[in-house]
Nucleic acid binder design. Structure first.
Lengths: 320, 320
DNA sequence: GTGAAAGCGCTAACAG
DNA sequence: CTGTTAGCGCTTTCAC
């Protein structure tokens, strides 16, 4: 495996010159550039991450924390991130070259990784309680508000929810329910709820809510309870795909009347192929890209905005 | 950040003694052990992976390749693996400390990682065509047969399928269909098909098959086509959750008669909460554990078996 | 512009 | 049993 020294010899220059060339900082004459390039090609030289790591005290890895990787939103996010990072790395961006996905008991695992200096930064896509002050690496969150020092990436939850509600309203729906799991931490996701309340108040409609910190897996019971209590709804806005599907299923089992359902995310389409849900679709790729760009800047000590908002879109399906 | 030298000084010994102590190889006197232990505790010393990496030319990372991380089986597998590796590492097993999940275009990404010596080994949980000879790191596959050099972990596909068929048969089902996506590469998953054929032949029943290399996302069309052509089935065995759900849905939409459905994996229960599918459940945790243990052995140059079979189980739900 | 040299933290001979 | 020593591959002063 060729090292920088082999390249230097082959090119007839010192190894610091090669280093300068490879890292792109410092001057290298045109002549030497060419010889180095050739040597690199000939020897198939690839800079050693461990050498760099040791010297620079960086791991070139980042972590992404999610509550569970089996959740379609989180797994799609992780996949996007991975792909984007790979794309950058392939293009020669040397700031980071691997991403470690951390699920379940994230706080402990993340701490473990940081203690061992195994990561240079992390994403938090999670609602677990986090004492972020303990962490010594740059952090970026998705949806989660943790204070000035931690930039946050969100989609335009408020606007997107409003759009969906307007759609239902324009269709003539006047008895619109809202169902979902309420985040226990300060989260941008709460803006969906704000939008619902504001909209209904503006239109002078009565709210029909089922919004608490439910455990995942129990959506069906929650939805059943909701529909059993709230007779005569003509539409329901769900804050997740799981709640939307549960509501759909509960309505079916209870023989509920015609009911428009709008889901959030629309990530489960490839699994639940029928019916096609009408959904508010977050731009997961865009969010991942934005988040990565923020984190890379933070890692390199550059300044970066406190927050980035990525637009969501509305996708009409068969359920509304 | 304390280094091995700080520990050595604090303990009043040479750094190689500390190294020996930490790595567990070589003799260290009881007396020195104690002093080193104390120094480590006092200084909160954590061995540097980059130092080790550079010295030993190892990355302490492994990759797991899956076609897509959004597939519940794959994501659960990845999560299991991650957790198991973390558990081992936390217990002091220093053979590996991070896992990189590789999805989409796995072959190229894996190659990229290996070229940069970013991983010490990899799992292949994928049916993409792979020229494994190109790879210079130990490999372990799940379900996939690649030759003597590459150990494989599977569940007892044949037996588990047989058990499910027997269950249907004993319930009086005689017109049993089989639907699924057929792997294009040599795979242990084909044993499910073998079991189906063998069982039906043994019982003198006619087979009803829909088994090709379908694209994911099209399960519903395939299932509809199947049920439309095959009238009068009283049971269907699906080789995945997605096919099972699609069959269930297609039967509903077509107004098909009573139909028992058995799914494979049972990974989607937390999303599709109703109906509860009767499933053949692979022991994903067990498979991940087995695979990890094989890979660790290979990485350390120890001998290991060519294959490990992990039992699957049968879980009765509402659909059969 | 460039090269020599120091050193990041670690392990493995090797000599005591 | 233990300490000294020589790198692993890289970046970065600092002279030239």
């Amino acid at each position: 495996m060729a090292s920088i020294i082999d390249v230097a010899k082959a090119a007839g220059v010192g190894k610091s010159t090669v280093s300068r060339y490879v890292s792109g900082k410092g001057y290298v004459s045109e002549e030497n550039r060419a010889r180095i390039e050739e040597a690199i090609r000939k020897l198939r030289y690839v800079p050693s991450t461990s050498g760099r790591s040791l010297r620079l005290q960086r791991s070139y890895a980042m972590a992404i924390c999610v509550p569970m990787i089996t959740h379609p939103f989180f797994s799609r996010f992780a996949e996007s991130l991975q792909s984007e990072l790979f794309r950058l790395a392939e293009e020669g961006d040397g700031r980071l070259n691997k991403v470690i996905i951390v699920a379940q008991d994230e706080q402990r695992k993340l701490k473990w990784l940081i203690e061992r200096r195994l990561i240079d930064g992390a994403f938090l896509v999670t609602h677990e309680k986090f004492d972020f002050k303990e962490f010594g690496v740059p952090l970026v969150t998705v949806d989660r508000l943790m204070g000035r020092e931690v930039p946050v990436v969100t989609s335009d939850n408020y606007e997107a929810t409003l759009r969906a509600l307007r759609y239902l309203y324009d269709k003539g729906r006047r008895s619109i329910g809202f169902i979902g799991g309420r985040p226990s931490q300060r989260s941008e996701v709460l803006r969906r709820y704000d939008a619902y309340c504001d909209f209904l108040e503006e239109k002078g409609l009565a709210p029909h809510l089922r919004y608490q910190d439910y455990r995942h897996g129990e959506e069906i019971e929650v939805a059943e309870g909701f529909l059993r209590e709230e007779k005569g709804l003509d539409a329901v806005l769900a804050t997740s795909d799981a709640f939307a599907f549960a509501t759909y299923r509960a309505a079916f089992e209870l023989g509920y009347g015609a009911l428009d359902i709008i889901s959030y995310d629309g990530c489960m389409d490839e699994w639940i192929q029928r019916p096609r849900f009408t959904s508010i679709v977050q731009d997961i790729d865009g969010m991942a890209r934005a988040a990565l760009s923020l984190l890379l800047k933070k890692i390199c000590g550059e300044s970066c905005p406190d927050s980035v908002v990525v637009p969501a879109s509305f996708r009409k399906g068969e359920t509304a």
